[in-house]
Computed example of a mutant assay.
Amino acid sequence: MRDAARGGLRQKSHQGVVDFLGKEGLLNERVMEVFRSSEVRKIVLGASMSDEGGLNLGGRGVLDVLDKPNSFMFLTEIDFGGTKLEDGDLAKIGRLPKLTSVGLDQTGIGNEGIFNLVPLKQTLLRLSIAMNPDVDDDAVPALVVLHKLSKLCIIDTGIGMGGLRRMAKVIDEEGRVIDVEIPARCEEYVESIPTRYVLYPQPPLIALPAMCAKLSAGALKRNLEAHKSVNGSILAGGTKEEMRERLQEILRIREMDMVVWGMVFGHGE
Results as ranks from 00 to 15, higher is better:
M1Y: 13
A4N: 13
A4L: 14
A4K: 15
A5P: 08
R6W: 15
L9I: 12
R10I: 09
Q11D: 08
K12Q: 13
H14G: 12
H14R: 03
G16E: 06
G25F: 10
G25K: 09
L26R: 13
L27Q: 06
E29V: 10
V31M: 09
V31A: 15
M32N: 05
E33Q: 13
F35R: 02
S38D: 11
E39V: 04
G46H: 04
M49Y: 03
G54N: 09
N56A: 04
G58R: 12
G59T: 06
G59N: 08
D67Q: 11
F72R: 01
M73G: 07
F74Q: 07
F74V: 01
I78W: 09
T83L: 08
D87T: 04
L96F: 09
P97K: 03
G108P: 04
G110T: 05
E112S: 15
I114Q: 04
P119F: 01
Q122K: 14
T123L: 05
T123F: 00
R126A: 07
S128A: 14
A130S: 14
M131D: 15
V140Y: 02
L143A: 12
V145D: 08
H147C: 10
C153E: 12
I155N: 12
T157P: 14
G162M: 07
G163A: 00
A168M: 07
V170S: 05
D172Q: 09
R176H: 05
I178G: 03
I178S: 02
E187I: 01
Y189E: 05
R196V: 02
V198P: 02
P201I: 00
P204F: 08
I206F: 03
A213F: 06
K214I: 06
R222N: 12
R222E: 15
I234E: 01
A236H: 11
K240I: 01
E242D: 12
R244G: 02
E249L: 10
R254M: 08
D257P: 01
W261H: 10
G262H: 05
G268M: 14
